[in-house]
Design a binder for these strands. Sequence first.
DNA 1: AAGCCACTTAGAATAAGTCTAAAAATAGCT
DNA 2: AGCTATTTTTAGACTTATTCTAAGTGGCTT
Lengths: 146, 146
Amino acid sequence: MKLDHGHKIYNQLTSAQIEKRLNDIGISATAQRIAICKYILCEADHPTAEDIKKWTDVNFPKLSRATVYNTLEVLVQAGLLKELKLPHTGKIVYDTNVAEHFHFLDSNTGKLFDVSPEECQVTLAMPNDISVQGVEVFLRGKISIK
Amino acid sequence: MKLDHGHKIYNQLTSAQIEKRLNDIGISATAQRIAICKYILCEADHPTAEDIKKWTDVNFPKLSRATVYNTLEVLVQAGLLKELKLPHTGKIVYDTNVAEHFHFLDSNTGKLFDVSPEECQVTLAMPNDISVQGVEVFLRGKISIK
DNA sequence: AAGCCACTTAGAATAAGTCTAAAAATAGCT
DNA sequence: AGCTATTTTTAGACTTATTCTAAGTGGCTT
Ligand SMILES: [Mn+2]
Ligand SMILES: [Mn+2]
Ligand SMILES: [Zn+2]
Ligand SMILES: [Zn+2]
């Protein structure tokens, strides 16, 4: 189980690298989109739209709320992000980990961790007229202090 | 997998029975609370607050939105209901099935089904400093037409 | 009857997200 | 470069689920 944020400290990208990644997936790399991606890809961990807006308010002022939401939609459509609605808040969070994985919420800190399918296996025994196409797992618990 | 609603057709309760259930768990049985329980316990299937309000608008007019929410909170605190925030809508739904179970959303119909822990087994292999206290599973898929 | 207290009420407030319509930037073409 | 079409951005209005507020109701106790 790894915390995205801790991981991303080593994941700094230049604007040019981000521009290339956007172009590669057919998204025109505007200054606003690059700024938002810089935060999402290099700093943030499962950020909400509000988190992103707060960051741009400091680092790219004048960028509007609508642009945050527009950009997120573009990035989700392109498959660079996954949108998650987690049960502990009403808010949507955006996940840069687009591989199949689940989530663990540390109820002490409120921090969210990615859980790999190896760490959490789901075995289904449903009636055979049911075809399951998506599985979401949300775990809550505590991390014992060493 | 069973659909609560279908099940509840056979689960009619009299006002007196509901009154007793409420008293047994230490809740004073007001007319408003009995009305809301009648709907939740006998008719509804994972209703939202709005579903409940719509029903009371017809069956117990003048009951206010605040009373719906207040009553739901009382019932949840008392353990008669579980509050669920599911990812497919922004809304909270209320579940009379307070035993451990999961949910399946039929993406064709939007209907929600209960899934028992036998039908969906979760095997965890988390680092041993993690203690998991709650598991939520949300499945999406289709029911093949026979 | 007066006071108390739990409950209810209408409507205001909040907050996440969406929509709108106009302005600005960009891209394509001559 | 200039002109036009398209894309992107913007401020602020709007929607919607839920919470909050502050006043009203009604049964019980003394
Ligand atoms: Mn966040
Ligand atoms: Mn419903
Ligand atoms: Zn994740
Ligand atoms: Zn259920």
